[in-house]
């Protein structure tokens, strides 16, 4: 008969299985393992984001008396973090340890996201007609976009308030958390960046926190229905907390200045 158009009987894999690395590195070789890593690192980052937000609430406590001096409460908190577990560790050592952990988590989170995205792009084939989504929501479909927004924002945020790059925040001074925040966010365009980025962050968390349960295999009929609530609650709480800062500053509710003056006026 005529020449066959396709030679097959057994399916051809679209990717080859790679040589297995020793445990536990082999976990990171498969997509299920990568998702597990993504969930664990996501959990770490989520914990950081939550405590970061809670810590920032100190902004609203204004100025306090400390060792006879008037200081912004949040500046004290910043110093507390640098002094964590002193004298067991030298000053800032534990903070740096935590920072390294976070950097590692961010790195793995982003790397796994990137490699999984590449894998998914290689696995799919686009429909020519419009696909009608039933379960996928805005959050789940925009994870890559919100993730990228958050990553870019992270760099901006660090440059703005941690490294104090002068072309971004000319008035930045080390240790002056309250005033640095106040000066930077009182500019409308910076406030806007913070608002947009934090909405993206919460949208990311809304799907990510739920997805984490599935990827880690945390599934139990007794509390499955709570998983969406937990994810929504976390995303909502973080959204409200984080949005309040730029709004409070832009609206003038919080203004940079001298803690001494704030106390005497208070």
């Amino acid at each position: 008969m005529a020449a066959p158009t396709v030679q097959r009987s057994a399916a051809n894999p679209i990717r080859k299985k790679r040589k297995e690395l020793p445990f536990p590195l082999n976990l990171y070789q498969t997509a299920v393992g990568k998702k597990w890593v993504m969930a664990v690192t996501g959990l770490i980052i989520l914990g950081f984001v939550l405590f970061h937000m809670l810590g920032n609430l100190k902004l609203y406590l204004g100025a306090v008396e400390h060792n006879g001096e008037a200081v912004w409460d949040i500046d004290l908190y910043g110093e507390f973090l640098r002094e964590l577990l002193v004298p067991l560790f030298p000053r800032t050592y534990l903070l740096w340890l935590l920072r390294f952990g976070l950097i590692g988590a961010f790195g793995l989170h982003i790397h796994s996201a990137y490699t999984l995205t590449r894998m998914n792009q290689a696995s799919g084939s686009r429909y020519q007609s419009k696909q009608d989504w039933l379960a996928a929501n805005f959050a789940s479909r925009t994870m890559r976009v919100t993730g990228i927004i958050v990553a870019l924002y992270l760099v901006f945020h660090l440059a703005d308030l941690t490294w104090g790059w002068s072309f971004i925040s000319p008035e930045w001074e080390r240790g002056e958390v309250y005033n640095n925040l106040g000066h930077s966010l009182s500019r409308w365009w910076v406030g806007l960046i913070y608002i947009v980025a934090n909405i993206a962050l919460s949208v990311h968390i809304f799907h990510g926190a739920w997805s984490m349960f599935q990827s880690l295999g945390l599934n139990n009929p007794r509390w499955n229905s709570a998983r969406r609530l937990v994810a929504g609650g976390l995303a909502g709480a973080i959204l409200i907390g984080n949005l309040s800062f730029p709004i409070a500053i832009l609206s003038g509710m919080i203004e940079p200045g001298d803690p001494e003056v704030s106390i005497s006026e208070g």
């Binding site: 080859k16 894998m119 799919g124 039933l134 739920w210 990827s215």
Partner: peptide, 21 residues
């Protein structure tokens, strides 16, 4: 089975479209 699956298919992003379909 998981590792064979991954030679052919993409990864799960927990959309839930599969279960709906």
């Amino acid at each position: 089975m998981v590792e064979t699956m991954e030679q052919f298919f993409g990864s799960c992003t927990n959309h839930g479209e599969c279960s709906e379909a």
